[in-house]
Amino acid sequence: MKVLSFYSTTVGKKLVMAITGLILAVFVLGHMAGNLQIYQGPEKLNHYAELLRVSMPLLWTVRIVLLLSVLLHIVAAVQVTLQNWRSRPKKYAVSAYQEADIASRTMIWGGLVVAAFVVYHLLHLTLGTAHGSFKPGDVYHNVVAGFQVPLVSLFYIVANVLLALHLYHGMWSWFQTLGFSHPKYNRARRVFATVYAVVIAVGNISIPVSVLAGWVK
């Protein structure tokens, strides 16, 4: 099949990673923005949570798109990473990076930690099985009670720092992979990716920090 023949190359795999990564990044932004309603009190946040579940077909459509994106993103990432390792069986004795930064060099590792975090996050605040006092429907209580455990908050904070690093490279990189490059806006790509990563990190991390500090209770 034609699509499969395109996917067989790393250029094709990277195209899939760019598109799925973009879907996930847009979701992460929306998820963060919605959750900031915690600062408007329990009624507002719990009402927002109810709103998301008004239409089950819509909810499951979104969930399936996200799940497929996550799976394709990870499968392609593992495939290209393994090929990259095979492409350089013998390492250099001296390595000196000139442009590659910590973000671009840790995509696979940061990505895998974030993936593990997402599983924990779903068990913690969606299903509640990894939560001490989970009350279905009372999102505000679940978040506040969950983040009052310092170790849990710490994991959320660390995962979000890694997510920001992942986005810092990814939100710049997808332009390149999808072929959007022009001297007119190439500089803006780096600014865009930096702002995107910082906004996500600050927005998300502010919630456990506010709970631990007692500003949200």
Binding site: V11, Q83, Y97, Q98, S104, W172, G179, S181
Partner: peptide, 27 residues
């Protein structure tokens, strides 16, 4: 291997060829 957009190639290229050509090829 595959492209991770590290841009090490552009830095090493003795002719200073830009990675924007990689974007062009991807397109």
């Amino acid at each position: 291997g595959s492209c991770s957009n590290h841009r090490e190639c552009e830095a090493a290229c003795p002719k200073g060829i830009s990675v924007s050509f990689i974007a062009r090829m991807n397109r």
